[in-house]
Design a protein around this nucleic acid. Sequence first.
DNA 1: TATGAATGAGCATTCATTCAT
DNA 2: AATGAATGAATGCTCATTCAT
Lengths: 202, 202, 202, 202
Amino acid sequence: MNKAKETKKRILNAASELFSIKGYDSVTMREIAKKANCSHSTIYLYYQDKNQLLEKLAVPPLLILSKRIDRTINREQLDSLSKLKATARDIVNFSIKNRSLYLMYMTINSEKVDEEYYSLEVNSIRSALFKKLQKIISLHCSYLSEDEILKYGRMIFFQIHGTIMTYINSEEGSSSIRLRIIPILDESLEILLQGIRGKSSY
Amino acid sequence: MNKAKETKKRILNAASELFSIKGYDSVTMREIAKKANCSHSTIYLYYQDKNQLLEKLAVPPLLILSKRIDRTINREQLDSLSKLKATARDIVNFSIKNRSLYLMYMTINSEKVDEEYYSLEVNSIRSALFKKLQKIISLHCSYLSEDEILKYGRMIFFQIHGTIMTYINSEEGSSSIRLRIIPILDESLEILLQGIRGKSSY
Amino acid sequence: MNKAKETKKRILNAASELFSIKGYDSVTMREIAKKANCSHSTIYLYYQDKNQLLEKLAVPPLLILSKRIDRTINREQLDSLSKLKATARDIVNFSIKNRSLYLMYMTINSEKVDEEYYSLEVNSIRSALFKKLQKIISLHCSYLSEDEILKYGRMIFFQIHGTIMTYINSEEGSSSIRLRIIPILDESLEILLQGIRGKSSY
Amino acid sequence: MNKAKETKKRILNAASELFSIKGYDSVTMREIAKKANCSHSTIYLYYQDKNQLLEKLAVPPLLILSKRIDRTINREQLDSLSKLKATARDIVNFSIKNRSLYLMYMTINSEKVDEEYYSLEVNSIRSALFKKLQKIISLHCSYLSEDEILKYGRMIFFQIHGTIMTYINSEEGSSSIRLRIIPILDESLEILLQGIRGKSSY
DNA sequence: TATGAATGAGCATTCATTCAT
DNA sequence: AATGAATGAATGCTCATTCAT
C-alpha cells in the first residue's frame, strides 16, 4: 500500500473510532487529524469535508451487512431459528465492528448532517433490516397474518437493538463483547420465537 | 413562589424542553434564555453553567422514576406480569418525557459531560433498573437460579431499551409515541415471560 | 450616545476605513475588530456577517448622494455649467468620504460579495448617475440628439471617474485631495462642455 | 525552446489569463497549475512565489507599452491629435490585454503585494505615462506654460483612465470592449483638445 | 525535471461565559 | 434581581508553500 492510501486509511480509522466514542458532532477535524497522525488540512486532501468522511465511513459496511444477511437467509440447509440467530449474529458483528455507525444510524439527530444522506441511508438500512427479519419470521410460522409478522418482526428487532445498545458503549474489546452478547441474544431469540409460537398457536 | 424561583423554574423548563427536542449539544444558552423569557446572563445567576443545567434537569426525574417503580413493585394486589408491564410503562413514560436525557444516560459519551457526573448517575440508574427488573422476574418464577434471573432480567431490559431507542428520535409527538410503544411492549413482555416459563419449566 | 451605539459606530468606521484602504476581500474581521478596539466576536453582536457590514456601509451614503444630486439639478437659479460642476463636486465629495465604497462600486469583482447585492446597487448607482449627467447635458445643449447626449454624458462621467480614481488611493488627507481635485475637474468640465458645443454646433 | 522553458511559459500564460479574469487574490496556485497542465509544486520550480509570478507578468508588458508609446510619439508624419489618439489606443490595448494588471497598477493597495514592487512600478508607469502625454500636448499647443501642460496632461490622462476603468470589469470580451472604447475615446480626445485650444488661445 | 504528500497560518463564524451596571 | 456588552477559545475549511522522492 502506498503512502497516500495509508494516510487515507489512517484518517478513516481515526474518524471511525472517534465518531463511535464521542459522536459525530463532538468530534473535530483537528482531533481526527491528531489521531491519524497528520495535519487537519491533510484530511481535506482526501475527503471533501467532515460530512463526506462520515458518508465514506457508513455506506460500504452497510452494503456488506445487507448482502451478508441476504446470503444467510437464502442458505437452504438452515431452519428458520438458525437463520434468525445467524442474522442476529451478522447484525451484532456489524454493530461491533462499526460501533460509531450503529450508534449513529439509530440515535443521531444532528441537524448538521445533511438531511438527504441521513434519511436515505438510515431509512434504507432500518427498513431493509425489518423486511429481512419479517421474512424469517414468516418462514418460521407460515400461518401468521401480515400484521402479526410486522409486530413480531419489530419485537425481534427491538431485542437485538436493545442488546447491542446496552453493550456498545462499554470500553470492552470487540471479541469480548461478542462473546457476551451472542449467547444472550441466541437465548433471547429462542425464547421470543417460542413465545410467539405459544401465543399465536392457540 | 417568589420571582426568583419563578425565573429559575422557567429556565429549567425551557432547557428541558429544548434539550429533549434538539439534544444537549445543539441547544445554545441564548435559545434557552429566549424561551425562558430572560437574558442569557440571567441563567448564570441560577446555574453554574450549561452542564449543571443538565445535571439539575436529570437527577430529579430519575429519582421520581426510581420511586415510582418501587411503588409499582410493592403494590400487593398486582400479579408479576402486571407489575412488569407497569414498570415498563413507567420507564417508557420517563424516557419520552426526558427524551434527550434518556439518550444521554444510555448512549452519550460526550466528553463535554463531566465524567464523574456521567458514571455516577448512569451506573446508578442502570443498575437500579436492572435490580428492579430482576426482582419482578424472581417474583414471577420463584424457582429460578440467580444466574437465570440475571439473564432474563437482561433480556427484558433489552427489549424495553430497544423498543424505546427505536422510537425516541422520531419527530412524533409524545402521546402518539406512547400509544404506539406501549401495546407493542406489553405484548413483547407477555411473550418473553411466556417464553421464559416455557424454557425454564421443563 | 450609549456604549453599544458607540461600539457599533466604531466598528463601522473601522470597516469603512479598512475596506477603502485594502479592499473588501483583503480585510479580515480581526483587523476590523482591532481597529475598532473590540473583539472580533463583538462585531457579530451588531452585524450579521462581513457582507452585511459592507451593505450597511454602502447603501445609505449612496442614497444621500442620489438625493443631493437631484436637489442640485433642480435648483432653478443655476445655469447648466454650474449644475454640472456642482454635481461633479457632489460626486467627488461622496467618493472621498467613502473612498472604499467608490472603489468597490467601480472595481470590485470579488465572487465573495453576494451577486444580487452587487449588481443591484452598483447598477442602480451607475445608471442613475449616468441619467442625471445626461439630463444636465440636455439642459445645456437642447439641440442634441439622444445619441449625442448619451455619448457626451459618458465622456463627462469618464472624466469625473478618471480624476477621482487617480487620487483616491493616495495617502493624502481628504480635504487636501478635495482642494486638488475640484479645480482640475471644474476646468475639465468647462473644457469638455466647450468642446461639445464647438463640435456639435457646426 | 526546451521543455523547461515551455513549462515556464505555460505557467506564465495560465497565470496571466486567470489573473485578468478573476483577479490576483481569487486565483489559486492549484488553478494556475491545472491550466498550465502541471503540478502546483512545479510552479515553485520556476517562480519564487505567487507574488513573483505577478511581478514577472507585469513588468514586460509595461516595458512594451512604454516603448510602443515612444515610437508613436516619434513618428514624424503624424500630427499631434493623431499621436494622442494612437497613444490612447496603445494604453487601451494594453489595459484590456492585462485587465487585472491595469487594475492593480492603478487601484490595488493589497498589502499582499510587496510594497517596494508596488511603489516602484506603479509610480514609474504612472509618471512615465504622464510625461509622455504632456509631451504630446506641448507638441500640440507650443505656446502653453509648464503649468498648463501639466494640467491638461492630467485631464487627458483622467479621460483615458476613466473610460478604461468603466469598462474594464465588465464580462465583455476584449475585442468587443475595444470596439466600444476606442471611438468614444477618440471623440473625447478631439473634444478635449478642441476645448483646450479654445480655452488657452484667447 | 517534476510531482504528490503534507503542512501551518489564516479565515469567517459560533458560543459558553464573564463583567460592569 | 437582572441585563446588555464584550470576549476568547474553538470549529470547519482554504491555500500558499515545503519536502521527500
